[in-house]
């Protein structure tokens, strides 16, 4: 069962089209219940537009988004209640206080658990009286998380949400995210341009570049597809060059992805290791830039 399914989502921005053309082209993917999916790409690749379309903050030109099988048009109220969204910047009215937010949450979300909210606010030392605009960036992020974690949702949509958090908090949050999906009935979609934090906990990776899907697959599968090889420039024979993806050279050597095929190992003399998701993406982007 898919908690989130995005089908053929397209969006063209007129203004920026003249300046070089930004658009979202036929994006389709789904996140099954109980799993975490990373939505990865460079700044401006279309991540936020996709997430905003899911949140119905942006109207797509075509395509459909279903949350637990229901579209926004069918039932806007339950659609929005099922989602917990945390943005890359605070989305609360600046002049509101934590108390105002708490009151509004209680008014509009029947599942809102005030005790749980207060517990989170106390744990993260969020003051109730000052206006939210006096909060630090980290506090704003914490308040957003408190407001979505204190009610029942089916899916969390996180847009670069761990930015501005200290390592301690990040760690705590990752554990909470895993706890959230543990029962197998919740899912998470998070966008990021930096996979470092989420590399371990992500189940699936969607990679977007210039509004288009590059790949969408299970992270473990992806990691097994490539080895990261390094070597001296003299090792780069034409035959080897042909096999490698995204060769990144410097004065003293190179690094590249080596696609792992059945019983096929990189030539001796090269240093090979397990790549991280970030390393795979950096080299793929390099490859794409060269083939253009």
């Amino acid at each position: 069962m898919d908690l989130l399914s995005v089908e053929h989502l397209s969006k063209q921005y007129k203004k920026t089209q003249k300046q070089g053309g930004f658009s979202l082209q036929n994006i389709s993917f789904s996140v099954p219940a109980g799993y975490i999916c990373g939505y990865v790409g460079r700044n401006g690749a279309g991540k936020t537009t996709t997430l905003n379309a899911i949140m119905h903050l942006v109207r797509p030109d075509s395509g459909e988004v279903l949350i637990d099988g229901v579209s926004f048009e069918e039932d806007p109220v339950s659609y929005r209640r099922q989602i917990g969204y945390v943005g890359d910047a605070s989305y609360f009215p600046k002049d509101f206080t934590l108390r105002d937010i708490r009151e509004i949450l209680a008014d509009f979300y029947p599942s809102f658990d005030m005790k749980n909210f207060d517990r989170l606010a106390a744990r993260w030392e969020l003051p109730a009286k000052p206006k939210i605009k006096t909060y630090s960036r980290g506090m704003k992020v914490k308040l957003m998380f408190a407001s979505v974690l204190a009610r029942d949702t089916k899916i969390l949509i996180l847009d670069e949400a761990t930015n501005g958090l200290d390592p301690m908090m990040r760690n705590e949050l990752l554990a909470m995210l895993q706890e959230y999906v543990e029962d197998g009935n919740h899912s998470i979609l998070f966008s990021t341009h930096n996979m470092e934090d989420l590399q371990d906990i992500a189940d699936y990776i969607f990679f977007i570049e210039e509004g288009r899907k590059v790949f969408f697959q299970a992270k473990d599968e992806l990691l097994e597809e490539y080895l990261l090889v390094r070597g001296g420039l003299s090792d780069l024979t034409p035959e080897l060059t042909g096999r490698l993806t995204g060769i990144q050279k410097n004065e003293f050597g190179f690094s590249a992805l080596y696609p792992v095929a059945e019983n096929c190992v990189p030539p001796a003399g090269l240093l090979s290791e397990k790549p991280t998701v970030d390393e795979i993406i950096v080299h793929m982007l390099r490859q794409m830039r060269e083939t253009v």
Binding site: Y35, L174, E182, G184, D200, I201, K219, D220
Partner: peptide, 17 residues
């Protein structure tokens, strides 16, 4: 599988495998 994933901080697909 899911508890193991949470406790060890790895993905569910990893522990499932």
């Amino acid at each position: 599988i899911r508890k193991l994933a949470r406790e060890t901080g790895v993905s569910v697909i990893t522990t499932t495998r």
